[in-house]
Design a protein around this nucleic acid. Sequence first.
DNA 1: TCTGGGGTCCTAGGACCC
DNA 2: TCTGGGGTCCTAGGACCC
Length: 431
Amino acid sequence: MVGTSGGGQNIALIDANNFYVSCERVFNPGLWQRPVVVLSNNDGCAVARSNEVKALGVKMGEPWFRLRTLARQHGIIALSSNYALYADMSQRMMTLLGRFSPRQEIYSIDECFLALDIHDNVTQVGQTIRQEVANWLGLPVGVGIAATKTLAKLANHCAKKRPVYAGVCNFNTMDMDDLEHLMSQIDVAEVWGVGARGSERLHAMGVTNVLALRRADVHRLRKRFSVVMGRIILELNGISCLSLETVTPPRKQIQSSRSFAVPVYEPQELAEALLTFMRRGVRRLRQQGLLAGAMHLFIQTNPFREREPHYCQGVTLPLPSPTDDELQLARLVRQGLDRIYRAGYAYHRAGILLTALERATGQQDDLFADPVARQKNKALMDTLDTLRQRFGRDIIHVAGEGVCHRWAGKSANRSPRYTTNWKELPVVQAG
DNA sequence: TCTGGGGTCCTAGGACCC
DNA sequence: TCTGGGGTCCTAGGACCC
């Protein structure tokens, strides 16, 4: 049967190409056409790759030390990540994209869904979106349009990989036969939510391409896999199971953790690191107007060092009443660390996890909490917030946090924070 | 020598209760 | 000698995403 595959809604997925690399290129045009990677924290692995680097076969998450030789051979430029810059560029892009529809779901730092509630020239609107983002921000984006989120993701993949679509691929206007032929050429691993393990198992069953998965028996696969796989199959058939989440739900957990640049042995040094992570976590907690009901601490050795003894331990510390009080949490960090620390190990990573989060307003008062003490604490925390806003987030530390931070990672080649720091604004030469 | 960090959801299994 | 079963809640671990 021939006919268009659409008829449902026009869900667009807009996704920036190689986002971190593209952000760097906006401010350093010398990077265009060059092989560029952006490295993770600690300059550990490649987390963003330009097309030139992808063409060299470099995989996502590849450790940088293993790429050194290849990098020398091909002149790969490696940059430390600059999250302040990426976050700010992201915010600008999302604001711009939000002008195309009131129904926007910001899905990640570099992509969002938009419900395009129009009937005509939808593909043309996709092109306009691309041009606007390119004109205003200098970022290249791809646009996928389809009846469901999973299909829109797939359409976006096609928009990027197949030049024939010129950056905008609209499944809703495609002939059914053409669409299914296209799907038969795409590996099932490309489908959103299938993943590495899932695609391996599907391949073993003979379900190798997207069309085969679309035509697979929902009930059978739901049983063999999970409800998630059932939803994926329905979504591939144009039956929407994943709604557009236009309101960002409050976080359920906030994590702050890091690998160390050098091995850490001493409890005092671990305490310093954990206190720093706790403070960063609490900062985000307060920014989002939340309180934590529990805090989890963890410390671990390097799992890649097989010849050294491995140790990995964590502890969850419930709080008598939900809080965002740094001083109370600082005491808890020390108590918790005492419980999990074992001497003689080379610690490589540590972190905190704030859980059982709830909104700060409408919070149940602890029967035993002293209201006067609570007021005092709140006033103190608010003062800290104000000072940090004015003088920088690291201006005030919790006692015991230390100032040396031998463990703090390297970030050897970070670009300036062009858009968020007055001292690092780009200077345009006249003439 | 050097291998990220921050999230979400789902499932299985144990504890507990009636 | 017989040795239930169903519901709920919690947690750990797996899988996935970017």
